[in-house]
């Protein structure tokens, strides 16, 4: 009979690493999404070009390759990252590129009349963006940001390839040591699903809170 308590502990350790990666990766992705998304709407060609290059590059190459670059190639350029740093960097930049298009699309979808009201009230470009456009666009971004964040959570499994002891990595360790496949893989299946559900629930409550008052019913 196998004593599972130690192995369950291993898997829960892995869950912590996965959560850490998801939170930090999402934070970086969010920052990159706004920088690149706003960059694509810039008046300046160079800024637009830079933002577009970033988005196209990270959407157009595989997350595996990006991760290998962050972990195995960057040291040749004199930058050595821990597996966690490399994982956060690759996941954050990758998902941030998708998020940038969400930011841009949401901003673009705010009606022309809101911009015109800003001009008539003599608000500057940044003031309009900060106080009028972004607060309305943010609400439109939330559902897709939730999706992106769940994608990122599931994508964290790739870091097991650079020997980071995340959920998937630990499950494989447990499987190798116990010879049991069903239990560790069922456990991580449930944990991934629970984490994804948590993100979805969090995003929905945030959305509800932000939408308050906009429809004239709830205040």
């Amino acid at each position: 009979m196998i004593d599972w308590t130690g192995y369950i502990g291993l898997i829960l350790d892995g869950a912590l690493v996965t959560i850490q990666l998801t939170v930090m990766g999402s934070a970086l992705a969010l920052v990159m999404a706004f920088i690149a998304g706003l960059g694509r709407l810039s008046r300046f060609f160079a800024v637009r070009a830079l933002a577009t290059a970033y988005i196209e590059f990270f959407r157009g190459t595989s997350i595996f390759v990006q991760l290998f670059w962050a972990y195995f190639v960057l040291p040749f350029l004199g930058i050595t990252l821990t597996p966690l740093q490399a994982g956060v960097l690759a996941l954050g930049l990758n998902v941030g590129a998708y998020g940038a298009e969400v930011v841009r699309g949401a901003i673009k979808s705010i009606g022309k009349e809101q911009y015109e009201a800003c001009v008539a009230l003599n608000l500057g470009r940044w003031q309009s963006m900060r106080h009028v456009i972004l607060p309305q666009a943010l609400l439109l971004m939330l559902p897709t940001f939730g999706n992106n964040s769940i994608e990122l959570l599931k994508g964290t499994a790739v870091v097991s390839l650079i020997s980071l002891t995340d959920l998937t990595f630990q499950a494989q360790v447990v499987r190798a040591q116990t010879g049991n496949t069903l239990i560790p893989f069922t456990m991580i299946l449930i944990i991934y699903f629970a984490l994804a559900s948590l993100i979805g629930w969090g995003m929905r409550s945030l959305e509800r809170r932000m939408a308050r008052g906009l429809d004239g019913v709830r205040v």
Binding site: Q114, A120, L121, N122, H131, Q136
Partner: peptide
């Protein structure tokens, strides 16, 4: 404007005070 163009995410008073405070 014909279609008012109020800021839907701001209360009535915030719609009125926003521009004087910012500009």
């Amino acid at each position: 404007f014909q279609l008012f163009n109020l800021f839907p995410h701001k209360s009535v008073i915030d719609n009125v005070t926003l521009a004087p405070m910012l500009t």
